[in-house]
Design a protein around this nucleic acid. Sequence first.
RNA 1: GGCCCCGUCGCCAAGUGGUAAGGCAGAGGUCUGCAAAACCUCCAUCACCCGUUCGAAUCGGGUCGGGGCCUCCA
Length: 491
Amino acid sequence: MALRVYNTMSARKEEFTPVEEGKVRLYVCGITAYDYCHIGHARANVVFDVISRYFKWLGYDVNYVRNFTDIDDKIINRANELGMDSRELAEKFMTAFDEDMRALNCDSPTNQPKATENIDQIIDLIEGLIAKGLAYESEGDVYYAVRGFPGYLKLSKRNMDEMIAGARIAPGEQKKDPMDFALWKAAKPGEPQWNSPWGAGRPGWHIECSAMSMRYLGESIDIHGGGKDLIFPHHENEIAQSEGATGKPFARYWMHNGFVNVDQEKMSKSLGNFFTVREILEKYDPEVLRFFILSVHYRSPIDFSEKNLEDARHGLIRFYEALKLVEELAAVSESESSADSISDEDEKAWEPAANMLDNFREAMNDDINTALALGNLFEAVRAVNRVVAEKKGEGNPEWLKRLKEFHSRMLDVGRVLGLFQSSPEAWLNSMKTSGLEEAGLSVERIEALIEERKAARKDKDFARADAIRDELAEKGIVLLDSPQGTTWKKK
RNA sequence: GGCCCCGUCGCCAAGUGGUAAGGCAGAGGUCUGCAAAACCUCCAUCACCCGUUCGAAUCGGGUCGGGGCCUCCA
């Protein structure tokens, strides 16, 4: 099955065919740099990171552009509140954003342009729109005359007249029509400003994306992405600007990710249920957060809660336990090859693992269904665990080869998802040691107790042995006995 | 008021015409001194009603419930 993606414009899944064969031009709206990024940003960027990686995995040459909005009312206001220079403020949060993305294992886009580095392109674009009669200057501001663009609202499928009732004109705006929006804003004294044909000022909210998309990707691109909340007005305005200026289709596919809710409610500052990525990463492993995000289809709402994150953590542990098991078996079995090939009946047991790549591709081809893809991977894990548990074909070369195949395929699809790349041993270790202090424990203390219990068990003093285990269990530590000795993990 | 989305097992979540993936939790079993992990087995007819169809969780209409956008927002 060919790759199909849901296109907001047509409101259906469409087969993906790029503007230019073998290449993908992808533009995703980035952040306005006036605060730390939150879990909603994390979701959007993880989702498009996976989309970009998947296209690469399919062999496309991907040009992924994600902008920074580093000049905007919100930045100016926040800088004023803090008594900071607005440029400094923007720098600080752009750096923080990059750090957060790195923590979440998001690859850097091909280009990460900033609005302030594209002022000339923005001015050119606005001049072009004025020349075409689609924009007009008004007391140092420039507005887009929305009535002049026939396709306006085609993405959000709204009705202009019905919207006007609710529209409002902000003080100081000199619009001819309430639906018009600002392309350029005259600077107030003391505000950051650039010279323009209309006097000193700065770009409006939407024009930068049109300018940067065109500069870095061309007049027509393949995919334009962002959160659902950007459909109106941001993306609608981008279409008006870009298509108004070029007369060409702006983007072939519009992809929008769903919202993040917190405990069933929309995350918002007014509700006080607002989490930054940094806050979450203090408590949770970044890979767990990433896994959680990918466990839901990108267009569905996702509910962020302790319980759901904890479930995700257990799920990821299952994957790493399996990888660890396979690595250990592969290492031990290296030298002892015996027996012949695998039996026909065992062939069936291996099936989910053998079909991993096909199943993965099929799930991802259906509008990047990462939730299904992960479900399929869980099945492959179970198949492998089962084969190992039943000791079928243990030690024979074919068996070993398949274990290794499973392992390399896990890492292969894991690279697309941005998961499973840590050393299982180290990752599982970090899982068990995090949060020990809060429980009033240390690794040394636990190991001392294990030693004591070992002695007790040797003396068949099981009462004492169990008491030690129960004591640790109360603090969330589980002991695991094996022929090689006793290890432990966090519940 | 306008536009739009959703309602699948205790929780999370795939599935959008062919007879319900997966994870977490839970029950029983194998293993174990006892446990844990792993494995095996078990655990839903898809909010409700009425239609279309040989056949519907999937299509249409209605009811109830939840949510979003229309203002900066991923």
